[in-house]
């Protein structure tokens, strides 16, 4: 049997015997925690609006996002966030908490290599690709939108 065929057969076999995560459970956990974070964010916004009735909506949503980011960073620093995320999966990664955690965790991890080449250089180790992709895809979306407006 030639090597490529042997490997193909083996990879198929491994695929078959490797345990899979349960979809239903993962989705439910993500919905529970992710939804909870959104409800909490809305709660922050509503409380801010109650105490500062004259503030505009943009400022209020910026403030409530900042509150969630700050909490996520503190939870990361105290070593709690990764335990929640292990349970919630996309429930904590998709909201802004995931982004905050990715930067904070890298900052903690690489601080030991110094403030410039450690923390400074590697703080965006995980979040960097997200930013690059975000900018690249928004450019593509912008061009598509521009073409649509021409029609």
């Amino acid at each position: 049997m030639d090597i490529q065929e042997r490997n193909k057969k083996y990879i198929e076999y491994v695929e078959l015997v490797s345990p899979k995560a349960s979809w239903g459970k993962s989705l439910f956990n993500a919905f529970l925690i992710g939804g909870g974070i959104c409800v909490f964010g809305q709660m922050c916004a509503d409380i801010l609006r109650y105490f500062l009735p004259m503030t505009d909506n943009v400022t209020i949503s910026a403030w409530s996002s900042m509150m969630i980011i700050t909490i996520a960073i503190f939870l990361t620093a105290f070593g709690v966030f990764d335990n929640i995320a292990r349970f919630a999966g996309a429930g904590t990664i998709v909201p802004i908490t995931g982004f905050a955690n990715s930067i904070a965790s890298c900052a903690i991890e690489f601080k030991k290599e110094g403030l410039i080449f450690g923390l400074g250089a590697k703080m965006f180790f995980v979040a960097g690709p997200v930013i690059v992709n975000g900018v690249a895809f928004s450019m593509i979306a912008g061009v598509i939108y521009w073409i649509i407006t021409l029609l």
Partner: peptide, 17 residues
């Protein structure tokens, strides 16, 4: 973990295998 995978406090899920 830091050499082969991701930072310790990063909130991700590990594969079941």
């Amino acid at each position: 973990e830091r050499q082969f995978r991701t930072p310790l406090e990063l909130g991700n899920q590990r594969q079941t295998y």
